[in-house]
Design a protein around this nucleic acid. Sequence first.
DNA 1: CGCAGATTATTTACATAATCTGCGGTGCGGTAAT
Length: 483
Amino acid sequence: MELEQLLVKHFGYTSFRPGQREIIEAILEGQDVLALLPTGMGKSLCYQLTGYVLQKPVLVISPLLALMQDQVEELKRFGEKRVVALNSFLTAHEKRYTLHFLEQYRFIFTSPEMLLQQQVQDKLAQMELGLIVVDEAHCISQWGFDFRPDYLRIGQWLSMEKRPPVLALSATATEKVMHDICQTLSLNRPFEFIYSVDRPNIRLGRMMFSEKAEKAEKAQWALQHMTTSTGPGILYVASRKRAEQYSQALLQAGVHTAAYHAGYGAEDRQFIQQQFLDGELDWIVATNAFGMGINKPDIRQVIHETMPANVANYMQEIGRAGRDGQPALAILLYADGDEELAKFVATNDLPTAHHVERYQQLQQQQLLPSQMLKNGEIGETAFRVLDYWLQQESVEQVVQRLNELVVEKYRAVDEMQKIITTKACIRTQLLHYFGQHLKKQPVQCCEICGIQYEDVQQERRKQVKDIAMMSWQQRLQQLLLGT
DNA sequence: CGCAGATTATTTACATAATCTGCGGTGCGGTAAT
């Protein structure tokens, strides 16, 4: 059957979107593929349709449980029954059952951590997969080195002698991220489909604040702006506490708001996310926990209260605005010295040379290094990362690698800072960072080229504003200035 | 690193300044404790 016929039969679409056909054909020819497509451009279809042609199971490695559940539901809506999420939502019994009949599923979603369990590996070794998909593949680079090392172990697993094609999917990737993906997954001369990362309908705004006045002025500006402009929007903040403070202040001003961060349980997060998707919230105030897998077309604004840790994150985060193609606005609030906090947060949880030494010392005494965890000498994440690297490399190499990671994180922050503080066109610089060129400059481009904010100014809040103004300013002072 | 709030020191207070302490992002899986 022709691809078009399958497309209609299984998904009810009559034509492909840009890239889909090329990507699917490359996979069917047995090629590895690296595909960078903006969210909402039908990334999932690239492996979904392929699954029907191949008649062999498709394994999809996904970074978030919630994302897997969404994908499974989506396929079920299209009438597919042979689809499963192999993850910790399953009870022990369900997991055993699923594993036993794993080859009978057409689409298998799982996490890197689950994939690498021995029982799963054993089962997969007996199976013949048709395709391995790494969804949100930038996670390899973003998380693999210092947060979820199993993302790097996927690569080792993939270096098995006989493997099906690998499809790495992401929305945006810098050249470094692309390099990390290809390197880690040892993609074999992959077919690359790279869609422009430029989003011409998103204006790139930036507000500068002096260091001294930062706290007060920035918060005042942000709250003033959010209470008088159109949502729906996301305010990205650097800490959970600040997310709470801003959402409180906004609620005081009568704005429909919720905070979102990893401090909430899965249920709360799901609920808040759904409210936002349903249009019940004007603003969501979030840490970088929020966003992956969110495909809300009408987000009008994304504001950064402090700079993201790197350009890739910035691009991912602002890219959540204006998916519908209508004008949208991204504003980054910068104050001198913000980069210090970004650097600290980015490197704070890394294991140190001292940890390496201690680990080694315990090993030499025939003791379990994991007692560092129990003693509270090291965090869980740092321990896992340390454990991973010491399995790979010598002590000297690990110490050096950890130093390099810090340097790399600092450099990433510096690059972000440079792009938003220099006097050159922000859009041009961003695209250049992604190895691309600006083909046509939008009329409303960036802060440097000159943009207008007027269209987001909101009428209907005006009555609310006068009444609420005093109370939110007082509230703000309480919360942020402690006076 | 930098900030805020708590604690301590001092020229023993209806007080102030110095110092200390805690806090600051992202998720998986499976186990222990409730």
